[in-house]
Design a protein around this nucleic acid. Sequence first.
DNA 1: ATAACTGTTATATTTATAATATAACAGTTA
DNA 2: TAACTGTTATATTATAAATATAACAGTTAT
Lengths: 130, 130
Amino acid sequence: MLIHLDFQSDIPIYLQLKMQIIEGIATGKLKPGESLPSVRQFAEDLGINLHTVNKTYNLLKQDGFILVHRQKGVVVNPDEGPKVTEEYLTQLHTELRPMIIEAFCRGMSKEEFNKICSQIFLELKEKGEG
Amino acid sequence: MLIHLDFQSDIPIYLQLKMQIIEGIATGKLKPGESLPSVRQFAEDLGINLHTVNKTYNLLKQDGFILVHRQKGVVVNPDEGPKVTEEYLTQLHTELRPMIIEAFCRGMSKEEFNKICSQIFLELKEKGEG
DNA sequence: ATAACTGTTATATTTATAATATAACAGTTA
DNA sequence: TAACTGTTATATTATAAATATAACAGTTAT
């Protein structure tokens, strides 16, 4: 699993890492049941602190993307991953709203907006198949 | 212009204020050419610091949503507001990507995702007409 | 059993950002 | 002259991110 962290970004490292792991799962680079490095090994590989990786793992565990076995270590959820819950929909709506408000204000139509979203969806699908 | 700030939110106040002003412009509650309170007056009304309002105004000015005349004070851009620039599209894409990755990972189809976006668009349109 | 590993927890420190507090400057307006 | 405008500067407080060390409890392989 190849990770690239931007230390100059205003996005916290633990969130960058979380996103890229989710992307790995989404595109199939990380298969269900596949192991992830230990917090110490991953931290060393990425040149960051153990606690930063641990923070990321805790978030992913909380969302149901990964499981933490006392024996097997950290593993991509081998069963069904997290689904579209009510809680998630609320969060998604909260995050989308301000973005759409600005898009609307700039004169972007919902068709244009949806086109951009669809394109990102297709890119993910292609990565998953390719 | 009615503003509600959530001091418990993890979203910074200056961003909450920025979003709500843009929403006001989007929904027509703030008309082109309309005046906004001075930094001091607005800060007093909202119970926050002068500099927090100033930070918001500077961001809105930078994006072209408002103008700052030495005489007239702060005014909603009376001409055409900011449009869909290349820079904006890049930013939008960067913000949308992680959200769509998670949606995709949770098994949400692009049709479902677009439906949610469309609904938010329609809500804004209704507010603007109503 | 000893050693090396696992996630987890605790504590402390450094760094960066958000927000506030005062103060002042230059220009405008009544 | 007095009261306002945005702007700038400086300092302080509060919070979150990231790091540094250390330890604990359980597992695994030698």
